[in-house]
Design a protein around this nucleic acid. Structure first.
Length: 303
RNA sequence: GGCGCCGUGGCCGAGUGGUUAGGCAGAGGCCUGCAAAGCCUCGUACAGCGGUUCGAGUCCGCUCGGCGCCU
């Protein structure tokens, strides 16, 4: 990958092996196989699998995986929280076993796990609500205000982007900025020696896997799962789980269709991320997971 | 066979004489504490043919297709 080289003639592995790919590409199974062979564990980089209570809907892996089911549905999650936990998990695995396997579905989370992005501070108490109110009163005025106190931020955040205008204002107010001093999101400066693999699956294969998985979700009882989960408070972040709203607002048949459409869209989104990850090594994943895992280990060792 | 209704871009769906409806899907881009999210950009379609008109998706006729009702 970058920043380090293996001694010539020696077979050595990077400290972190990351696996990324679109939903239903077989990420978790492959990652588990890789981890098994290396006698280590998988650290999940998935914004929704962190929640407990929706194992079917969020397609949580069967094998115990780090950072899966660690939060209750009432909790909010954030990039900064995740990054801290991910770094700790990776460090622990590397220190004890020499290598950690990171498997991601959420592009941003995967990047945050691998790179040391300096995530700007959390909003001060009340700041978020205050700026949201201001924004709702008049977006143009809010944006103009941002322009005065943080021109760079104003230039990079569109007036219609409520979330970011609000976030930028919270930060500008305390002297920070939503605009990073250094581009780290796409940086090749990893925290540790790392190699990232991208699972490549043909369109038709992905489509049929998505269908199969969605059908299985229903067969396994997502409807009941969601109904039960809905009885309690669900945080704004957990609320975004794909299908969570559809399953209560629409008939089962209609919900199935919507989930299919959204899952496809999500897969396309992940593929875009995949293409942009610097230094990513594409691996043909249109074959049994164990073979994919072998291919990954082979490439990783050759580095 | 007769009568009536309908036929809009991949889908849904406004529009009844004179600027681009809109939504969803799709494509491209952005993204630094909500990322399975959010934001930006991108579509000249009106079943076909003919007619009326300065001008028709919008009016008239015929044809085709669909639905309904009646003999």
């Amino acid at each position: 990958m970058v920043g380090w080289g293996a001694p010539v003639g020696m077979s050595s592995l990077p400290e972190v092996i990351a696996v990324f790919g679109p939903t239903a590409s077989g990420k978790s199974t492959v990652a588990e196989a890789v981890a098994d062979r290396l006698e280590t564990e998988v650290v999940s980089a998935d914004a929704l699998q962190v929640y407990r209570g929706l194992p079917i809907l969020t397609n949580q892996p069967e094998q115990p995986t780090r950072l899966v089911a660690i939060r209750s549905l009432a909790d909010e999650m954030s990039l900064a929280d995740y990054a801290k936990l991910a770094h700790a998990a990776i460090d622990e695995l590397v220190e004890s076993g020499g290598v950690a396997v990171v498997a991601g579905g959420t592009g941003l989370y995967l990047r945050a796990a691998l790179v040391d992005m300096r995530v700007p501070p959390a909003p001060r108490k009340g700041a978020r609500g205050r700026w949201e109110t201001a924004y709702d009163a008049d977006p143009a005025v809010a944006h103009a205000r941002l322009e005065r106190i943080d021109p760079a931020a104003a230039a990079s955040v569109h007036v219609n982007d409520r979330r970011r205008v609000v976030r930028a204002l919270e930060l500008a107010e305390v002297g920070a900025s939503i605009v990073p001093e250094r581009e780290l999101l796409w940086s090749t400066e990893m925290r540790r020696p790392t190699i990232v693999f991208g699972l490549v699956v043909p369109d038709e294969t992905l489509e049929s896997r998505i269908r199969l998985r969605t059908e299985q979700m229903f067969a396994r009882g997502v409807v009941q799962e969601v109904r039960r989960a809905r009885e309690e408070r669900i945080s704004r972040t957990a609320e975004q789980a794909l299908g969570l709203a559809d399953l209560v607002e629409y008939s089962q048949d209609e919900a199935y269709k919507r989930i299919l459409v959204k899952t496809r869209r999500y897969a396309a989104y992940q593929r875009k991320w995949m293409r942009r990850i610097p230094g990513i090594v594409m691996i043909d994943a249109d074959r049994p997971p164990t073979e994919v895992a072998d291919a990954i280990l082979e490439v990783a060792r050759a580095r």
